[in-house]
Design a protein around this nucleic acid. Structure first.
Lengths: 216, 216
DNA sequence: ATCCGTATAATTGTATACAATTATACTTTC
DNA sequence: GAAAGTATAATTGTATACAATTATACGGAT
């Protein structure tokens, strides 16, 4: 009856290493050896290697003869990520409006409700967590593994990066309002409105992020 | 002076397993155990496992308690892939027009020249190979690791799938003409034209593919 | 006959041992 | 003193051994 994979050391290492890199613990360009990571994480090379391969696949680490080079994420990468999301996440919202199950819709509403609550409590960490959950639910609910596997890493990178950046509560209020509009459209099964609302949301997010990062 | 990573068994297994799955050797839904793959490929579990993790990251395999389930790619996935590419590959073409080095441009021209040559020789395998090289060069030349790491897996999946499908020489001629227009725009450094030509190309490819697959 | 429990087999997770490659440092020679 | 070559150390690639978990099959009890 075990439906979900049990959590392995490799998964933990992957998560932690990604966090450490995107969170700035390791400087970009720094070279990481397997032995060093083994020592720091207290596990053997096997899970370390599996985590490394996955991070390599996501372009967060880069192989370079001797050791792995930390690629990390730059402000330009964040701009690129939002450029891409602006163009395709609307499709996911449309599909979600057409395909989400009642249970998924209920969970989505709950995420927006909670986000509003945490905004009112001025709790930026939980606001961001609900923001994260909201988008992931749409990726999950759109019914396309292609859209999901494309959007999840992009969103995750942007998310982790934001945790280290200044933006916290600034745009939280309007962002939550935009989520509410997307959510309402999905609940109504209105694909056009959901896509439009998502595009609107991401354009604002992009503008805000670009303003903060001082690029483009 | 070894600039490129040496090719490992894990890389070979990854490539081969991806090919075998997308090529239809393993039925979708089939369960693969590590032991079986070890035997079939004649290597130990270590490289098998690393390849599995990477394929899992690309949603080609799915973990399911006992063994890995073959996800593979459906006609709907191909449609989704082209929907996404239509929306973002134009950006890559624009960037390539702005950023490609003379060497990269020269290689790009060469790929289109070769593709035209193979079309004239009615050699579909090499036509497809040059088609593949053309797009990869643009991903590489656009200067964005985000665009690259997003587009490469999508393109690779579509490419491998096509190898197993009927479409071979059908659209090769017009496709090559479209590549030529994209290439000319990139050579001229005209980002607008490159983006427009790429969008045009992908819309045609999408239409052709959808017609063949009989979907939407 | 069926259901439950235990034992056994199969499978994955993890660690470690071993091999091969590559970089670095030291020594020797010119 | 510089350069080249060799030896040693460091690092990754691969295989295997061991542990833990889970499924399956068999046997006994009701």
């Amino acid at each position: 009856m075990n439906k979900h994979k049990s959590i392995s050391l490799a998964d933990i290492v992957f998560e932690r290493l990604e966090n450490d890199i995107l969170g700035g613990k390791y400087a970009y360009g720094e070279v990481l050896t397997e032995a060093r990571l083994c020592e720091e994480m207290g596990v053997s090379r096997t899970p370390i290697r599996e985590a490394i391969r996955r991070l390599e696949q996501e372009n967060i680490l880069r192989e370079s003869g001797k050791g792995m080079v930390v690629q990390g994420i730059t402000a330009e990468d964040i701009a690129d990520i939002l450029d891409i999301r602006v163009r395709i996440e609307g499709i996911a919202a449309r599909r979600a409006a057409e395909k989400m199950t009642p249970e998924q819709k209920k969970a989505l509403v709950n995420a927006v409700d909670l986000q509003e609550f945490y905004v009112s409590k001025a709790d930026p960490d939980n606001v961001q967590w609900q923001d994260h959950a909201f988008h992931e639910m749409i990726y999950e609910g759109c019914g396309s593994t292609t859209l999901q596997s494309t959007l999840v890493p992009l969103h995750r990178k942007a998310q982790k990066f934001r945790r280290a950046s200044v933006e916290k509560i600034n745009r939280a209020h309007e962002s939550t309002g935009e989520h509410r509009r997307i959510c309402d459209a999905i609940l109504a099964g209105d694909g056009d409105a959901a896509e439009a609302a998502m595009n609107d949301h991401l354009l604002h997010a992009r503008e805000s992020m670009i303003g903060q990062l001082g690029i483009d």
